[in-house]
Write a protein that binds this DNA or RNA. Sequence first.
DNA 1: TCAAAATATTCCTTGACAGGAATATTCCTA
DNA 2: TAGGAATATTCCTGTCAAGGAATATTTTGA
Lengths: 108, 108
Amino acid sequence: MNSTFSALSEPNRLHIVELLREGPLTVGEIANRLGLNQPQTSKHLRVLSDAGLVEVHAVTNRRYYKLRPEPFQEMEVWLDSYRRLWNERFDRLDDYLQEMKRKEGEKK
Amino acid sequence: MNSTFSALSEPNRLHIVELLREGPLTVGEIANRLGLNQPQTSKHLRVLSDAGLVEVHAVTNRRYYKLRPEPFQEMEVWLDSYRRLWNERFDRLDDYLQEMKRKEGEKK
DNA sequence: TCAAAATATTCCTTGACAGGAATATTCCTA
DNA sequence: TAGGAATATTCCTGTCAAGGAATATTTTGA
């Protein structure tokens, strides 16, 4: 959780993550789209990778980076504990959703 | 969004935020519970306050800090755009939840 | 009014981290 | 197989932020 926030606290890394919502991208593509230099892009991707936010899939010369769902799921769970701070009205519905998710998890 | 992640990237600040889930607390109480010195606690609270994560309510000598819901709501919205990364099964239910939230927002 | 409690702020030092530039590495292709 | 993409790594430097210690500020209560 902490490593997730650390990784996302850097503006360019946050941009990378938001860009990767569209789907897997190459280092060069990321660098181009965001106006970053290649080395810094690789370095940021390294940090994101260490934090488990992205994973690589190498095809020939290129390396495709894409988002890993786990950290986002963790954030979701983490956020759940703050939900009662606001909007009490949806607690029951949220509970239902959480229950569904829990059952889903058990099946695996 | 960025300022939220920055504020939460510091371990002690994350602890403070998690502690404040229980409810408003005094600087001294926070410092005690987390084993922090008072000055650093005040400094961390300052950062959290600048990021809009907490707000103060002064009563006589004490200052009670408590969480503000807005940043967490923003994170929720932000996370929504990543939800299709996993668990497609819940998209429809999530959509329903989002629709409810949207309608709720309109009423104000 | 004065001492003490609660909190905030300042100054200093140190460590971490991001960017730039250069270089290494890997793998393809002509 | 040599050259060139595409990517990763290293080294260096400057900046910034966190902790420690001391001090300032505010407010209470005797």
